[in-house]
Simulated assay, not measured.
Amino acid sequence: MENQTPRRPTTSTPTQKYLIAYNAVCLGLWSIVTLRALILIPTLATFGKLEGLFEALFPMLKWTQTIALLEVVHAVVGLVRASPITTAMQVASRILVVWVVLEMYPEIVVSTNIYGRQVPGSTTGPIAFSGILTAWGITEIIRYGFFVWKAAVSERVPAALTWLRYNTFFVLYPVGITSECLLMYLALAPAAKQGKSVDLLLKIVLGIYVPGSYILYTHMMTQRRKVLKGKGKSA
C-alpha cells in the first residue's frame, strides 16, 4: 500500500499524532499475527496439522486487516500522500479474501484440495492461508515500521528499513497474490452450491486480478525508482 505518512508539519498536530498512533497500533497488531504465524506454521506442519492455523489466527487476522479500511478514508480526505484508487484496490482485495472467502467458506482452509473437493487433511488450502499470513504480515510490519519511524522519529529512515520497504515486494507481492487467487479459486465450489451471486463475484475478481496486480506491482516499482533516484541525488 502507499504512503501513510502524514503531511509532515513543522510542529506536531492532532492529525500527525493520530496517524502516528494509527500506524503504531497496526504495526503492533501485524507483529503479533506474523510472529505467531512464523512460530505456528513450522510447528503445525511438522505434525501434519497445518489446518489448525486457521482457528488459531483467522479471528485476529480478520480484524487486523479490516482496520485498513481507514486507510482509504485517510487517502480520500487527504490526510496522507496516497492515491485513493490504488489504496482502495489493495484494501478491497484483502477485505474480499477475509470477509467473503475465508469468513463464508472456512472449509476451504481446513479440508479442501485444489480441485474444490473436501478432503480432510489436504494441505492446499492451509498452504495458501499460510501464504497470505506471511506475505501480508511481513509486508505490513515493514510498511508500518517505515511509516512510524518517518513520522515519529526522523525523516531520515535507516537505510536497511528503506531497502526492505522498496525491495521485499518483489517476492512478497507474488506470494500474497498467488495465495489470494488460490483461496478464491478454492471458494468457487462451495460458493456455486450456495448460489450464483458470490460465485460470480469471485469469478469477476479473479478475472481482474491479472491487470489489477500488474497495476499495483508497477506502482510499487515506480515508487521504488523515485526513492532510489532521490537517494542517488543526495549521495
Results as ranks from 00 to 15, higher is better:
18 Y>F: 15
231 K>P: 00
135 A>G: 00
84 P>H: 00
107 E>M: 11
156 R>H: 13
87 T>P: 03
187 A>D: 06
102 L>A: 13
102 L>W: 10
55 E>M: 08
167 N>I: 11
21 A>Q: 08
145 G>F: 07
130 S>D: 04
69 L>E: 00
112 T>Q: 09
85 I>G: 08
188 L>D: 02
22 Y>H: 09
37 A>R: 00
159 A>N: 09
44 L>K: 04
83 S>Q: 10
8 R>P: 02
80 V>Q: 03
214 Y>E: 07
74 H>D: 09
160 A>S: 13
149 W>E: 03
158 P>I: 05
130 S>I: 03
25 V>F: 08
13 T>N: 05
103 E>H: 12
99 W>H: 12
18 Y>T: 14
138 I>V: 08
65 Q>L: 01
1 M>L: 15
34 T>L: 14
19 L>Y: 09
196 K>I: 12
49 K>R: 07
187 A>I: 06
35 L>R: 00
61 L>H: 10
123 T>M: 14
30 W>F: 11
165 R>N: 10
157 V>Q: 00
28 G>A: 12
2 E>A: 06
126 P>Y: 03
61 L>W: 10
56 A>C: 03
179 S>W: 02
96 L>V: 15
74 H>L: 12
88 A>W: 04
174 P>W: 03
51 E>S: 15
100 V>K: 10
48 G>Q: 01
63 W>V: 14
106 P>K: 07
28 G>Q: 12
51 E>D: 15
102 L>P: 10
3 N>F: 12
103 E>A: 15
209 Y>T: 02
131 G>N: 01
100 V>D: 08
43 T>K: 00
15 T>Q: 03
22 Y>T: 00
187 A>F: 05
108 I>V: 11
89 M>D: 10
188 L>G: 02
158 P>D: 04
210 V>Q: 06
52 G>I: 04
225 R>D: 15
